[in-house]
Each structure stands twice: as structure tokens, then as C-alpha cells.
């Protein structure tokens, strides 16, 4: 029973982690919280469904296509909504409010296009269950966990071993210095939004497949918990986002299994608040130091 719940928790946690990466990467570079990221995740999920169901593409074409389009959505949001504010140099709160505006826009856009109800998701992959003793593991669960781990490993590789990764890390240290070193920071920012949004799309497709459901407000609860995961791990830190995602997934699954299902979401935020009281910069975050 406990192992079963743990595995369920890891599955959800992996999805949170994928979304959290988008929050944390953007924060790492621009020091802003993209509150619309949860809704980008929702858009990604719907696009996956759209390409398979309405466009009739096979999933191996539809899903990469959805990732590309979602990445474009992310980049456009940054270009159209955040960049003008960023360039003016107004405080972070303005961008936060703009992001909330984008979030409201996307949710209502989705409701206009797809209605307010829940849609059944693509079931191209037939669910198979494997029994290991009294633990039940589905092929979808295995797929989710494996894919999450692979993508995180890939991202880790990109950030730490490739040229664009070096540019990203340089930009996150200081945009001005990076520019002076000849890095095209606007490109890096666009790439960050693109990669983050594509990962969110994967998470969206996985959630759709795993729960067989997608609806316009799905981004809200996933977005919040992924944001909580990013903060819990220490926002700006990629390993932190992964750790935070798994932790929140596990805590909320165990909490709702053993304590109270009604308070499922409260466990995620409860642990977040507890951790922040003890470590205000999150588990793997850097300590904020005011320079005097």
C-alpha cells in the first residue's frame, strides 16, 4: 500500500517537476514569476488533443508538433506581454500583474474554444497493468516516470554541457554582462521560454493521458503546485525544481491517502510554508544577500 502510494506520488511529482522547470528557468534568467505558465501547460495539453483528434495526426507527429506550437506560445507571450514591461525597467510587480492578465486571457480563451467542460483525452496508448506482489504499476505510469527522468536529464545536459546552456547560465548571472560578452540575451530568453513551454506541453500531454481528462482550468491547480515545487526547491535552481516537484507529488499523495483526501492540496502548500519558514530560500536555493 505504502509503496503503491509512493509510486503514484512519484508519477504526479514528475509531472509537477516538468512544469516547475519552466517556472524556475524563467525565474533564473529574468527574476520574474511567469504566472501564466500553468495555463501554457493547459494549452499544451489541449493542443496535443487537438492535433490527434481533430487533425488526425499520429501521436508521434502530433505530440512533437504540440510541443513546438506551445513553445511558440510561450515565446510570443514573452515577446508581446513581458518584454515591453521588462525593457521599460518597471518593477517585478508589473510583470506579475501582466502574467496574471495573460493567465486570465488564456483560461478564458480556452473556455471559448473548448467550452468549460472536461474532455476525454487521446487513448492511443492502451493501458496495461503490471502486478508486482501487491503493487500495481501501469505502462502509462512507467512511461510518465521514465519520460520525466529522461527529459530532466536532457535539460540538465543542455544547461551544463552545451553552448546555449552556457549562454543561459551567463545570462542568469547578469543580463548586462552577458550582453557585453556578445551573448544574444534576447535569444536566450526566448529559448528559455520556448524550452520551458515545451516541457509544460509534455506535462500537459502526460496529465491528459494519465488521467484521461483535460479542461480549461486544469492549469490552475497544476500551475500552483508546480510553482510551489519550484519555490520549495529554491526558485532559479533546476535540480531544486526537480526535487521540489517529486517532494510535493509524494507528500500530497501520501497525505491524501493516509490523512485526509479533502485536504489533498493543503499538504502541498503546508509543506511549502513549513520549509520556507525554516529555509526562506528553499531547499537548494541560494541565500539572498542584500548588498549594502
Amino acid at each position: 500500500m505504502f509503496t503503491q502510494q509512493l509510486i503514484n506520488g512519484i508519477t504526479v511529482g514528475g509531472i509537477y517537476a516538468l512544469i516547475a522547470l519552466g517556472y524556475t528557468m524563467v525565474y533564473g534568467i529574468l527574476k520574474i514569476v511567469n504566472f501564466a505558465h500553468g495555463d501554457v501547460f493547459m494549452v499544451g495539453s489541449f493542443l496535443g488533443l487537438l492535433f490527434v483528434q481533430n487533425a488526425g495526426m499520429p501521436i508521434y507527429i502530433a505530440y512533437p508538433a504540440a510541443m513546438l506550437v506551445t513553445a511558440a506560445v510561450g515565446v510570443v507571450i514573452e515577446r508581446v506581454c513581458y518584454r515591453p514591461i521588462r525593457i521599460k525597467g518597471t518593477d517585478a510587480l508589473s510583470i506579475l500583474i501582466a502574467a496574471l492578465g495573460v493567465s486570465i486571457f488564456l483560461e478564458n480563451f480556452a473556455q471559448l474554444v473548448w467550452g468549460t467542460g472536461t474532455h476525454a483525452y487521446v487513448q492511443e496508448i492502451k493501458e496495461k497493468n503490471y502486478e508486482f506482489g501487491n503493487i500495481n504499476l501501469s505502462n502509462i505510469q512507467i512511461g510518465v516516470i521514465v519520460l520525466c527522468v529522461l527529459l530532466m536529464a536532457a535539460l540538465y545536459f543542455v544547461v551544463n554541457k552545451t553552448k546555449i546552456g552556457v549562454a543561459m547560465r551567463a545570462t542568469s548571472q547578469s543580463i548586462t554582462s552577458a550582453q557585453l560578452m556578445g551573448i544574444n540575451t534576447e535569444m536566450v530568453i526566448a529559448a528559455t521560454f520556448g524550452v520551458g513551454s515545451a516541457l509544460a506541453c509534455v506535462a500537459g500531454v502526460l496529465v491528459g493521458t494519465y488521467y484521461d481528462a483535460v479542461y480549461p482550468l486544469v492549469g490552475y491547480s497544476y500551475g500552483l503546485k508546480a510553482f510551489a515545487a519550484a519555490i520549495l526547491g529554491g526558485i532559479g535552481s533546476i535540480p531544486g525544481a526537480m526535487l521540489g516537484g517529486f517532494l510535493i507529488g509524494i507528500v500530497e499523495t501520501l497525505g491524501s491517502a493516509y490523512i485526509s483526501a479533502g485536504y489533498k492540496d493543503a499538504f502541498a502548500f503546508g509543506i511549502l510554508i513549513l520549509v520556507l519558514i525554516i529555509r526562506p530560500s528553499g531547499l537548494l536555493g541560494k541565500k539572498h544577500v542584500d548588498k549594502v
Partner: peptide, 23 residues
């Protein structure tokens, strides 16, 4: 508990508090 937190950290904690109260 939020005295030591700032900006976005404070935002998510107050947000989480709101969710807990709603629950």
C-alpha cells in the same frame, strides 16, 4: 512566518495560505 520572505516567495506562501483556508 512570512517576515523573512520577500517578493515571489511571499506571494506563493500567501497564495498557499489562501488555498488552505478555502479547503
Amino acid at each position: 512566518p512570512t517576515l523573512r520572505l520577500r517578493g515571489d516567495y511571499l506571494a506563493i506562501v500567501t497564495l498557499g495560505f489562501g488555498e488552505i483556508v478555502r479547503l
